[in-house]
Design a protein around this nucleic acid. Structure first.
Lengths: 132, 132
DNA sequence: ACAGCTATTTAGAACCATTATAAAGTAGGA
DNA sequence: TCCTACTTTATAATGGTTCTAAATAGCTGT
């Protein structure tokens, strides 16, 4: 499906800026992790038009709200996003601030034994911090 | 052991400010989660002397470095700290933004099978997001 | 107890990611 | 085309955190 249809179906107008950001984020086999700062650089590299920083923030948040991106819970001064929206986990290299995907099979079975009344588990995220 | 000895043994001078913060953080059976902002309020409530915000930051970071506190990886504009430094994890209730402790035994054994060359695992944190 | 040294505290400034603002531009339906 | 609501944009504002540099306080050797 074309990005323009995907966006329209989500109630988002397929603007030029959004379509260009879609290409950068989703036109690849590989999923990846990024901060707004890194995305901004990538946009500057790959796109001739300028997209303002505010629009980048707006777009990423709109995509996150629609479920096309998710935030990675991490202690950092910047927010990390992930184009891989399936349940999976991460190594976080404290030295260079880089994230590495961890397959579910790399972590072993996770079974949350405790229940909270009236609540469902939406996601389980494992963060493995690495040091030298 | 007295806090002053504990601090000295860690190479931290037992200053009045650090000892007062110790009392607030550790003079309780219960462990808890807090932000700098919340700790600042608690200090204002419980202590007559003023402790500057910079000192609160310095102290919390010093304690974290020595392993008396740990950060909780979560997406928030503020950093959450935990006085419970044992292996344990958290439920995160998306509705009200509250954290709930999850004992290590509630999660089952975690075995990270993948290795990264030249890196050691510093910590493993599990965040279980809850929805209604 | 004192001197001298270093660690620590402090107020305020600086930093920087993120959010808000408000004006100009754009998509899509009638 | 016209209208309206949505979107983009530059810029300002916000707010948590870190930095700075001067004052203060703990520690060690004498």
């Amino acid at each position: 499906m074309k990005y323009s249809d995907k966006l329209r179906n989500s109630g988002l107008r397929p603007t030029k800026q959004r379509l260009q950001i879609c290409e950068i984020l989703f036109d690849t086999e590989k999923t990846f992790h990024f901060t707004i700062n890194e995305l901004e650089k990538k946009i500057k590299d790959k796109i001739d038009d300028k997209i303002s920083l505010a629009t980048i923030y707006n777009t990423v948040h709109a995509f996150e709200k629609k479920g096309y991106l998710k935030q990675i819970p991490i202690n950092s001064n910047q927010t990390y996003f992930d184009t891989n929206i399936t349940d999976h986990h991460h190594f976080y290299d404290l030295k260079d601030g880089k994230l590495i995907d961890l397959e579910n099979s790399d972590v072993g079975p996770l079974k949350i034994k405790r229940k909270i009344n009236g609540k469902k588990i939406k996601s389980i995220e494992v963060l493995v911090k690495l040091e030298d």
